[in-house]
Computed example of a mutant assay.
Amino acid sequence: MTARPSPGDLLAVDGRASVQFAGDRALTFRVVSVADQPTYAGWIWLTGYVLNRRGEATAKREIYVQLAGLRPAPPPDGTSRRAPRSRRASSHALRPDQRGAASGDRSGLRTGAQAG
């Protein structure tokens, strides 16, 4: 990958990108930002998240790597290219006594129609 990475790119960072990531120190990295500051020719500062095998962010890092050594990473195990589902409960999944809070009524009080 000699093209400049963009936010959202998923990269395999290993010894080809920098000796500090050689061997068992290799990582999968999701780019958040790319620094515009001048560096040595062919090198770049990236900010992003280290991902585990399930695709979960485990640490935010800023790394200094060689562009020529970066490679696109395959999607992490157990993930698809689809966006993750929202975990927010919908009102139909709530008990009748919980629906007031889900619809924006945060008072915890029931009206006469709800109390029955």
Rank of each mutant, 00 (worst) to 15 (best):
M1E: 14
M1Q: 12
M1C: 10
T2Q: 12
T2K: 14
T2S: 14
A3R: 11
A3N: 09
L11W: 04
G15S: 05
R16I: 01
S18I: 00
V19H: 13
F21S: 06
F21A: 00
A22S: 12
A22I: 02
D24Y: 02
D24H: 11
R25P: 03
R25N: 14
L27Y: 01
R30W: 06
R30Y: 01
V34G: 01
A35T: 02
A35Q: 07
D36R: 12
Q37W: 08
P38H: 00
T39I: 00
A41Q: 10
W43T: 12
W45Q: 08
V50R: 15
V50N: 08
L51Q: 02
R53M: 08
A57L: 00
T58F: 00
A59N: 13
R61K: 15
Y64L: 10
V65C: 05
L67Q: 10
A68H: 07
L70G: 08
L70E: 03
L70T: 03
R71N: 06
R71I: 01
P74L: 07
P76I: 00
D77G: 01
G78Y: 07
T79H: 04
T79V: 06
R82E: 15
P84E: 12
P84I: 07
R85A: 15
S86P: 03
R87I: 11
R88D: 13
S90P: 00
S90K: 09
S91E: 12
H92K: 08
A93P: 01
L94M: 09
P96D: 12
D97E: 15
R99D: 08
G100Y: 07
S103G: 12
S103D: 12
D105H: 07
D105L: 02
R106A: 13
L109H: 15
R110I: 03
G112V: 14
A113E: 15
A115I: 09
A115V: 10
A115E: 09
